[in-house]
Design a protein around this nucleic acid. Structure first.
Length: 876
RNA sequence: GGGCGCUUAGCUCAGUUGGUAGAGCAAUAGCCUUACAAGCUAUGGGUCGCAAGUUCGAGCCUUGCAGCGCCCACCA
């Protein structure tokens, strides 16, 4: 039984991990829900590598989890991999140089190209099946690296409980969820203008929107009434002029009242459009009169929906001006020839180029309706305005009519707000973000994506005798057949030969929003739908740890699903972590190039040291990377190790086993005081950890530990050095052993490696083969140890010893230097207290025999005065 | 425009129910001390963002203001 001279994390990590592994330290036992503590672990997105932000928030969860395990909870701490969805597709595209094209044939022996060089090689189009196999191959590789990182960080995950969001299990549950919602009439598909990313070629949901500041310009366009009157419209999107369906002004706007109900003519395209009154127009914005186009923004969509006007769709799915003919269908024009020749110049252009072109046309001196002036009334005025983007996209979103699946949320705002109040939010104020989001919802959840690597909809659509697809009565898969791929499997009662034929069917080609799967993480863990017994034991979960920027997505959608399926909340507590900021206080992100890899920090400081840094940050608080804190963590670990070494040494010197200490031996006042102090630390830190306030707990434990090292160890040292195992020494030894054991356990959730290393060489026994499965200290344990006779004895002794050190330091003497006379001036009460521990105090201060003098002060005087005369010549 | 949070020592942050302002780092001066020199000891350092109010008493409670950050909405 002995510790190495120094603790070297790199040397020990592997063997400590093996100890945890062989003892199945983190394994969940199938026990009742009441006995368990269930973590709804965030499945990290598999798209490259984990960064310090992950380390930060996952460690905070791990601390809570380790504490719960030690207080006897049967912890369920799974790990998922979020490997479906766009980030993975994008990574696979760049990594292997392939692109999915559903029209390409499968290759018999498809192998992704690991040597793809974007500078030299061409991007190859591959089939949907081949693309998906490449996605699976790369994510599988990434997941191996992720797991290694998590293990090194020391996450106490049960590695037998894993899933990935693309695996058949997750697909099945995602599809089951969809079918359950369909059964309850909570989903619908609809062809309607939807937010569309022209690069990714997919619809997106409100939750994935992001505003970005972009340069733009107001263009003042001259419109004319049939009567010949003119007015000016200000627009930032002149390229949508051919899609103008109406012109609106506020009903009370005197300037335009005379035009209401009449018809205006658009420049360039000579389209007659109604001038209408609408509350939606604001008189003091622009010229007070605005054009409605299909579609410039969400307001246009909403206005159009409540009107009876037709759509004029000029933008295609790629964000290119599509061919249309003026004079036909919705594109009415009083001069179709001119309209078409103008429009022809825009066809085929991307929106940006189209804007440039149309401004040129509008600027021509005869472009106005009267033929005598330019329709562009003034030079465009440059502005900066915010534009809606898909958060992962590069070009502004467009509203384009497409058929999509939606999950109903707008009807349930009240219920969802109520669900939010049933959950405990940590920190509490994060609930407000959830509530703001729910209140601000303006669209149902669009869940279909026109992508490939995701969960398909378990849906086919019948085709009638005329070859028309009937979207209103989809053919749903049967629950027992899940997961299904409607593109390769057929609906009940049909054969493959009927695919795409009259009286046949087609499969839904889309995949689900990745959040449609992530919103089911509690159910993915509980095996909802396939193992009812297990589901009952694991749902709802105890905690959901997550970051604040995904309250509107992950937290919200999870609450939605849980409510729709079970009418329940998915977890009791939600723990919101903050962000990691770089030293310049900017959010860490790959694009900014300020990412430090966790591995390099583990190598430099040790995983325990990095964990310490994460434990110093409160939930919800953004935290900068600070090397000083890593160093502090490292120092703490060294101190834990050295103090342990000291205690163990005292036992080794007289060949005793540290496990044989006896609390009944603790009789000395100083030792009783230590126990009493530590009892309080146990009580308060436990309370804090139960409330997820691990920072508070760590501070209490740490302060007590440094005091233990700086003061108690110094005071008890000489007594413990005695070779004779007398009662005083026995008292010291038992106090040392018990307090070391207690400190190791208290620190274990925070710094699992160093505490385990010491445990293995000290308190390990058959019942407690690993510290992380030992029991958390309770105040009961040492409740029979007598309380100190004087509550002030310990703190007064500490105060005296500190003043003595001050004198020695000021005299530039070693702290060991002998004191000829120690004079303590204090009141009677303090003197009694000090006398109870006086032997330890005098030895620690190295006071000469007969050198102590007490000077009595009045009882009103609470101050302790210490004066010291050092021996002149002293040598050891 | 609405909401939330933050503002305490040079830096990073604690500060429970209102009761004499704390820690670490940095700075300064020292010390080989039978665990630890990758260590230890001591010292200096603050108008608690500003203003007003409540109170015997405010870093903490109330109101207003300012700066910073974030969330949401609007954006012709």
């Amino acid at each position: 039984m002995s510790l190495p001279n120094k603790f070297d994390s790199k040397v020990s990590e592997k063997s400590l991990q093996e100890i945890w592994e062989t003892n199945k330290t983190y394994k969940w036992e199938e026990k009742s829900q009441e006995e368990s503590f269930i973590v709804d672990t965030p499945p990290p997105t598999v798209s490259g590598s984990l960064h310090l932000g992950h380390v930060f928030s996952y460690t905070q969860t791990d601390i809570v989890t380790r504490f719960q395990r030690m207080i006897g909870k049967n912890v369920f701490y799974p790990m998922g991999w979020d490997d479906n969805g766009l980030p993975t597709e994008r990574r696979v595209q760049n990594f292997f140089g392939i692109k999915c094209n559903p029209n390409v044939k499968d290759q018999a022996d498809f192998k992704p190209n690991y040597n793809f060089d974007p500078k030299k090689d061409q991007v190859v189009e591959v089939s949907r099946k081949d693309f998906i196999s490449a996605c699976v191959e790369l994510t599988t590789k990434d997941e191996v690296a992720y797991e290694a990182m998590w293990r090194r960080l020391g996450l106490s995950v049960d590695w037998t409980q894993t899933y990935s969001t693309i695996d058949p299990h997750s697909q099945k549950i995602s599809q089951l969820s969809f079918l359950d919602l369909a059964k309850n009439n909570q989903v619908y598909n609809l062809e309607s203008p939807t937010m569309w990313d022209v690069d990714f070629q997919s619809a997106i949901a409100q939750a994935e929107l992001e505003d970005r500041e972009r340069p733009g310009a107001f263009h003042d366009l001259k419109f004319q009434m049939e009567s010949g009157d003119e007015f000016i419209i200000a627009t930032t999107r002149p390229e949508l002029l051919p899609a103008c369906i109406a012109v609106v002004a506020h009903p009370s706007d005197l300037r335009y009242q005379k035009f209401f109900g009449k018809t205006a003519i658009t420049p360039l395209f000579y389209a007659p459009v109604p001038v209408l009154a609408s509350e939606h127009a604001e008189p003091d914005k622009g010229s007070g009169i605005m054009m409605i186009c299909t579609f410039g923004d969400i307001n246009d969509v909403q206005w159009w929906k409540s009107s009876q006007l037709p759509i004029k769709q000029v933008i295609n799915l790629q964000g290119i001006i599509r061919p249309v003919t003026f004079g036909e269908d919705a594109f009415v024009s009083i001069k179709p020839d001119i309209a078409n020749s103008n429009y022809q110049q825009l066809v085929g252009l991307y929106l940006k180029q189209a804007q440039k072109k149309i401004v040129e046309l509008l600027a021509q001196p005869d472009s106005a309706i009267d033929g005598k002036s330019a329709a562009l009334f003034a030079e465009p005025k440059a502005i900066t305005h915010s534009v809606k983007f898909y958060e992962k996209g590069d070009r502004p979103l467009e509203f384009i009519p497409t058929r999509q699946w939606f999950i109903k949320t707008l009807d349930h705002k009240e219920a969802l707000l109520e669900q939010g109040t049933k959950i405990n939010w940590h920190p509490e104020h994060m609930r407000v973000r959830y509530e703001n989001w729910v209140k601000g919802l303006n669209q149902d959840w669009c869940v279909s994506r026109q992508r490939y690597f995701g969960v398909p909809f378990p849906v086919w659509y019948p085709i009638n005798a005329l070859g028309e697809v009937n979207y209103t009565q989809p053919l749903y898969a049967e629950a027992q057949d899940l997961p299904v791929d409607p593109m390769s499997q057929v609906p009940k009662g049909f054969t493959e030969s009927q695919r795409g034929q009259a009286n046949g069917f087609i499969g839904d080609p889309d995949v689900m929003d990745t959040w449609a799967t992530s919103s089911l993480t509690p159910q993915l863990s509980s095996h909802w739908g396939s193992n009812a017994e297990r589901h009952q034991k694991l749902f709802p979960a105890n905690i959901r740890p997550q970051a604040h920027e995904i309250i509107r997505t992950w937290a919200f959608y999870t609450i939605v699903k849980s409510w729709q399926h079970f009418g329940e909340i998915p977890w009791k507590d939600i723990l919101i972590s903050g962000w990691v900021l770089d030293p310049e206080r900017k959010k860490m992100s790959k694009s900014k190039g300020n990412v430090i890899t966790p591995e390099s920090l583990f190598d430099e400081y040790s995983p325990d040291a990095i964990r310490y840094w994460t434990a110093k940050a409160r939930l919800g608080a953004d935290t900068a990377i600070e090397e000083a804190i890593f160093k502090m963590g490292g120092k703490l670990c060294t101190k834990i190790f050295n103090a342990s070494k000291f205690v163990l040494m005292q036992f080794e010197r007289i060949n005793l086993d540290i496990k044989d200490y006896n609390l009944a031996d603790i009789n000395c006042e100083l030792d009783r005081a230590l126990v009493a102090n530590l009892q309080e630390v146990i009580a308060e830190s436990s309370k804090a950890l139960e409330n997820f306030e691990y920072t508070t707990a760590l501070k209490l434990i740490e302060d007590a530990f440094w005091d233990f090292c700086d003061n108690y160890l110094e005071l008890v040292k000489v007594r413990s050095y005695q070779d004779d195992n007398n009662p005083e020494r026995k008292s010291a030894m038992s106090a040392l052993a018990w307090s070391l054991k207690t400190f190791l356990k208290l620190f274990a959730p925070f710094v699992p490696y160093v505490t385990e290393e010491v445990w293995q060489e000290s308190f390990k026994d058959g019942k407690n083969p690993a510290i992380h499965k030992s029991t958390w200290p309770t105040t009961n344990e040492a409740s029979n140890v007598l309380k100190p006779s004087y509550s002030k004895a310990y703190s007064s002794a500490t105060e005296v010893i500190s003043k003595v050190r001050g004198v020695k330091t000021a005299s530039q003497k070693s702290l060991k230097w002998e004191i000829a006379e120690l004079n303590i001036a204090c009141n009677a009460e303090a003197q009694q207290a000090l006398e109870s521990v006086i032997d330890d105090l005098l030895q620690a201060a190295n006071v000469k025999d007969q050198g102590l003098v007490f000077t009595a002060t009045s009882n009103q005087e609470t101050e302790l005065q210490v004066s010291v005369i050092l021996s002149e010549n002293w040598s050891q």
